[in-house]
Design a protein around this nucleic acid. Structure first.
Length: 503
DNA sequence: GGCCTTATCT
DNA sequence: TAGATAAGGC
């Protein structure tokens, strides 16, 4: 059994109260809640919507350190409420992603990019949050100033991985080292001999790796040196040596063809392999079912889409299948600003981020209203609507076809404004795009092989998959007033199986 | 000594 | 495996 060491950290603060408000309404969190309650009494779990939690926040605002919340998908104004809370109460907010395959995603809350957990928040993740809250409280007590950089650094370095659990029993030491490291960073003269201490192990989160890759692309081929990358990344506390080490691994990966670049010829040479291995592997769902019959079933139900845009530096992303059933602005926003499995983000795009744009479906070459999409079983890209000065010229996309075997393709072109100042949009399906933009992986004959199970189908799994899938309650998707039942639900047995297998 | 790269270690 | 460290070269 894992020991939650962050509780010790709290005690070291002299029983200073750390308060985390955790708002959720999802049975998947109950394991976390149960485990955390074992160790920590200073956080609160509310089963409310974000807006309902407002009164609690008002009541406790002075002693509240963090606000962790599951985005309320039935509430189309989820992000607005969060922004309000952040502004009014100056509270650090950690929204939880409604998407299974999201790890850490930067979202545009107010001025800074916040951290965004994957849906299946782990105990380790929660530990990291706890550490963050402690560091923040500690910083308040000592300096009386705003959150020190160290905090973000600490939490970013520890989020989304299990490094903390591996360092059980050393956390206090590590933390002290971190603290002393920070104070001695600029002027090491007054140090207490910490100079020859071991460097803290850096965990490269998706977020950091993304900044790393961005820096490399900015510097250009052959000019990416550790020092320059470090500067561009601008991650407090990160050391040149760590960047150099990461760069070495990164280059090794490139040589081995493992890294998919985000530039130019969009997907490199191994899209097929990548999809096969990673479509679902970043979620608990994928970890457990990637090699089972259930995976193919799931693929068939909810094809994927890969999207890239054409202007300037190309970004590419793999959209979670849920994106094709977007029903709210929140989801729409997320779709546009998230970091997807390729590790690159889609620029938050004003023109597209505007509300209420339709989505375009490659499979049928039609545009649909968001609610209408709930009935579709295909990949879509966000509609384009807004000043053309902000608009990109085209989107190209791929999706895994409904047969789970082939890849379908499509393109959305944007040209000029119509009389309403809205971009004219034309959409085509079937691979009619500029070949120089999209390279070989999708040439004819290329396909994503469906994994063959060596065992007979597990009907229990299939049954559960049926229960949790997008087809669970379509009415719920279509009708935002039916907010009481979650759009995607997991029955308890299935939920248990996921957690047990993952641990 | 600073920085980069590669090899090796953990 | 991923990240740290040692070592050699510029």
């Amino acid at each position: 059994m894992r020991k939650v060491t962050s509780f010790q950290t709290m005690q070291s603060l002299g029983n200073k109260e750390i308060c985390i408000l955790f708002v959720h309404d999802d049975p998947r969190y109950r394991n976390i809640v149960a485990k955390m309650l074992q160790y920590c009494s200073h956080y609160e779990v509310l089963k409310q919507t974000i807006s309902d939690a407002l009164s609690t926040i008002r009541e406790k605002k002075d002693r509240l350190n963090l606000f962790v919340t599951d985005i309320d998908r039935s509430n189309t104004n989820g992000f607005e409420i969060l922004q309000y809370i952040e502004r009014e109460f100056k509270l650090d907010i950690f929204p939880l992603s409604p998407y299974e395959d999201t790890k850490l995603v930067s979202i545009g809350l107010a001025s800074k990019g916040d951290l965004y957990f994957l849906k299946s928040l782990s105990v380790n993740d929660f530990e990291s949050l706890w550490l963050y809250a402690c560091a923040k409280e500690s910083g308040k007590a000592t300096s009386g100033q705003e959150t020190p950089l160290l905090d973000e650094n600490a939490v970013e370095a520890s989020l989304g991985n299990t490094s903390l659990s591996r360092e059980v029993g050393q956390d206090d030491q590590k933390r002290k080292r971190r603290e002393s490291q920070e104070t001695t960073e600029k002027n090491d003269a007054t140090s207490d001999g910490s100079a020859n201490e071991k460097r803290q192990r850096v965990t490269w989160t998706d977020w950091m790796h993304h900044k790393f890759v961005e820096a490399i692309e900015q510097l250009g081929p052959g000019k990416s040196y550790p020092k320059d990358i470090l500067e561009l990344m601008n991650v407090p506390g990160l050391k040149r040596e760590s960047v150099a080490s990461h760069l070495q691994k990164y280059r090794q990966g490139m040589r081995a063809g493992k890294v998919i670049q985000s530039t130019g010829s969009v997907f490199g040479s191994n899209l097929t392999t990548y999809l096969q291995q990673n479509c679902f592997s970043s979620s608990r769902f994928g970890q457990n079912f990637n090699s089972s019959q259930g995976n193919a079933l799931y693929l068939n139900q909810q094809p994927n889409l890969i999207l890239s845009h054409q202007s300037g530096s190309d970004y590419s992303c793999l959209l979670h299948p849920e994106a094709s059933t977007g029903t709210s602005n929140m989801r729409h926003e997320h779709l546009l600003t998230g970091t997807y499995p390729f590790g690159h983000s889609v620029s938050p795009h004003n023109a597209i981020a505007q509300n209420n744009t339709n989505l375009f479906d490659f499979g049928t070459a039609q545009s649909y209203s968001q609610t209408g999409l709930a009935l579709l079983d295909s990949g879509c890209v966000p509609g384009i609507n807004g000043p053309s000065s902000n608009a990109v010229s085209a989107y190209v996309g791929y999706r895994l076809a409904g047969d789970g075997l082939s890849v379908e393709t499509g393109k959305v072109d944007v040209s000029g404004d119509d009389e309403n100042g809205t971009d004219k949009v034309s959409l085509s399906a079937g691979g009619s795009w500029n070949e120089s933009l999209v390279q070989t992986p999708l040439a004819s004959g290329d396909y994503i092989p469906q994994q063959q199970s060596s065992q007979p189908p597990d009907h229990a799994v299939a049954h559960d998959l049926d229960n949790l899938g997008a087809e669970g309650d379509v009415g719920c998707l279509l009708d935002p007033t039916r907010s009481t039942s979650p759009q995607f639900f997991w029955n308890d047995d299935f939920n248990d199986a996921l957690f047990d297998n993952a641990d």
